[in-house]
């Protein structure tokens, strides 16, 4: 294993560590292991917005779900239901789901692979300042690089840290706004809120556009 690969794996271990400390994460065991087959049946409700293959809908800001880790997806559904992620539409769906339904849906979407909806044109600002922010951070703002938790290139660190690569820019920007405003506050250490508040609108646009241009990871078996 190369030194770089080892580093990547170790970051993964670190992020697992953070995730394991989250009280929410511990609740993931409430349900039996998810059934992707049953999840596929339930997903007909979701596909109207999130796409037939979990590819999302860029224009409306509906996120890609395909290949996102199951524990992350399950936690988001619980958090919509619990109110730590505020979204009226998702809350009503999530509240109607049993713990087992949530596990099954999460299992289903984690196995999907969807083609990337590449932005029509490369965003020059994203290519420079967005890339810097994502991979190195911003010393003046006091913000660390996103890759420290979300993985090199934004490939995610399962089980609880989502991939950002290939995610729709509109969704990413909206989420950074939600962290800033406190309508999303579902991470255990308030890391996202703390750093989002230090970002300007231009920073958010650039880093969101940068990640939208990256290739999403393929699902892990």
């Amino acid at each position: 294993m190369s030194a770089a690969m080892r580093s990547i794996k170790l970051i993964g271990a670190a992020c697992v560590a953070m995730a394991a400390l989250s009280q929410h994460a511990l609740r993931a065991d409430d349900a039996a292991p998810g059934s992707a087959a049953h999840g596929a049946q339930l997903a007909s409700t979701c596909s109207g917005c999130h796409g037939q293959h979990g590819e999302g809908l860029a224009a409306s800001g509906f996120p890609r779900l395909a290949g996102q880790a199951a524990p992350y997806l399950a936690k988001q559904l619980r958090d919509y239901a619990g109110g730590t992620r505020e979204n009226a539409v998702m809350a009503s769906f999530a509240k109607a789901l049993s713990a087992q339904d949530i596990a099954d849906l999460a299992a289903y979407y984690s196995t999907l692979s969807a083609p990337q909806a590449k932005p029509a044109r490369e965003d020059a600002r994203a290519a420079t300042s967005g890339r810097m922010l994502a991979n190195l951070g911003d010393a003046r703002a006091g913000v660390q690089g996103c890759g420290n938790c979300h993985g090199p290139g934004g490939r995610g660190e399962a089980p609880l840290l989502p991939y950002l690569a290939g995610q729709h820019a509109g969704y990413l920007a909206a989420q950074l706004g939600a962290w800033q405003q406190g309508t999303r506050h579902n991470d255990s250490g308030e890391q996202m809120a703390a750093l989002a508040k230090k970002l300007s609108a231009a920073d958010i646009a650039a880093v969101s556009a940068y990640y939208a241009m990256q290739t999403p990871p393929t699902p892990q078996p």
Binding site: A3, A4, R6, S7, I8, L10, I11, A14, N135, L136, G137, D138, A139, G142, V143, Q144, G145, G147, N148, P152
Partner: peptide, 13 residues
């Protein structure tokens, strides 16, 4: 902290 202490470089045992 930025740029010298950032991952993955900084997690090199």
């Amino acid at each position: 902290t930025v740029p010298d202490f950032q991952g993955p470089y900084v997690h090199d045992e």
